[in-house]
């Protein structure tokens, strides 16, 4: 069973005013089939955790370990992590000029699966995944993220999640900027992937809204670069009514 283990993770970034530590000792274990919600105020470091796990070059790991089934994730390059089964749905995915969605998806699936998917089944697979996410087929011929609306970008991220079938899915603020209908469709996409029981999900969010559609097994409150409280789904209800005020006093990283 796939297990992601994060132990005492410290991460810093270079800023104009020198090096700044953002993550200050994160411990977390995510197992296949589980869904963990990471919640916290802006600037608490939850997106840094997401990008550090994917290997974004902006972040420097200063200490701690991350392993996936015992393999050292931190030693892997960004593409190796993806091929090992780590997927990050980004909050602000970038435009890639000159590369069509269909070409991108196929290249990516080929890299992740280790061989080019058979054309006929692949076309069907993409088509049905796009239909379920209410995406126009013409979308496949557009350049990756070029001129996409906020909702289209998120659908495109979840489309990749469905097609790439990772072991660990990290969803960074996938709910932000979505209207209710889009949030529901995107959440249904995430649930389809979760329901097959083969993915461990790390749902990073500021709001509790998405948790109405995606029921987490665990909720962790993130503040000042650490997990300060962990609990079950009921912890989200507490955050819904009380907000983050009790966690941020004197502890915010900003």
């Amino acid at each position: 069973m796939a297990t992601l283990e994060i132990r005492d993770l410290h991460v810093s970034v270079d800023t104009e005013n020198g090096t700044k530590e953002i993550l200050k000792g994160v411990d977390l274990t995510v197992k296949q089939g589980e869904t963990h919600a990471i919640m916290g105020p802006n600037g608490s470091g939850k997106s840094t955790l997401a990008y550090s796990l994917a290997g974004h070059p902006k972040y420097t790991i200063t200490s701690g370990t991350v392993t996936l089934d015992g393999e050292d994730v931190l030693e892997m390059s960004v593409d190796e992590r993806a091929r090992a089964g780590v997927f990050l749905a980004m909050q602000y995915p970038v435009e890639v000029p000159g590369v069509s969605v269909s070409n991108f998806l196929r290249t990516s699936a080929t890299a992740i699966r280790g061989e080019a998917p058979k054309l006929r089944t692949w076309v069907k697979e993409v088509k049905s995944a796009m239909e379920q996410l209410q995406m126009d087929p013409a979308f496949a011929e557009r350049n990756v993220n070029e001129g996409f609306s906020g909702g289209e970008k998120k659908r495109h991220e979840i489309l990749q999640l469905e097609l790439l079938k990772p072991k660990i899915a990290i969803l960074d603020e996938t709910d932000s900027g979505l209207d209710v209908d889009a949030l529901r469709q995107v959440s249904e996409g995430i649930n389809r992937v979760r329901e097959n029981g083969e993915v461990g999900t790390l749902l990073v969010t500021h709001y509790t809204r998405i948790l109405r559609y995606i029921k987490p097994d665990y909720v962790h409150v993130f503040s000042a670069g650490r997990i300060v409280e962990s609990g079950g789904a009921e912890l989200a209800d507490k955050l819904e009514s009380e907000g983050y005020a009790s966690y941020t006093k004197g502890g915010a990283s900003e």
């Binding site: 994917a54 974004h56 593409d79 995915p93 590369v99 290249t107 890299a111 992740i112 990756v144």
Partner: peptide
């Protein structure tokens, strides 16, 4: 980073673009 985070090696990402 975006292309690599989808498993595509750096040299192939550049070629794709």
């Amino acid at each position: 980073f975006y292309l690599m985070s989808r498993g595509i090696p750096a040299s192939e990402a550049r070629r794709l673009v």
